[in-house]
């Protein structure tokens, strides 16, 4: 027998902490998945010059 029997409030707190933990874990996975899709689609990684058709600026070598 455990020396300190579990009070109902401990189970409720555990449930709440587990819920918050799982929610945060899911949020991390969502941000990661979204990042992978955005990076794979390409748009955000291209510099503005590359998107516009890439004319080199004056004084720079191509």
């Amino acid at each position: 027998m455990a020396l300190r029997p579990e009070h109902e409030i401990h189970t409720r707190r555990f449930g709440r902490n587990l819920g918050v933990g799982l929610t945060l874990g899911a949020f991390i996975l969502i941000v990661f998945a979204m990042t992978v899709v955005k990076v794979t689609q390409g748009g955000i990684l291209q510099a503005p010059a590359a998107q516009a058709g890439a004319e080199p600026a004056k004084g720079t070598t191509p």
Binding site: I9, R12, R13, G15, R16, L18, G19, V20
Partner: peptide, 9 residues
Amino acid sequence: QEAGFGDYV
């Protein structure tokens, strides 16, 4: 009272 996770849902 302390809220459970279901209460927040």
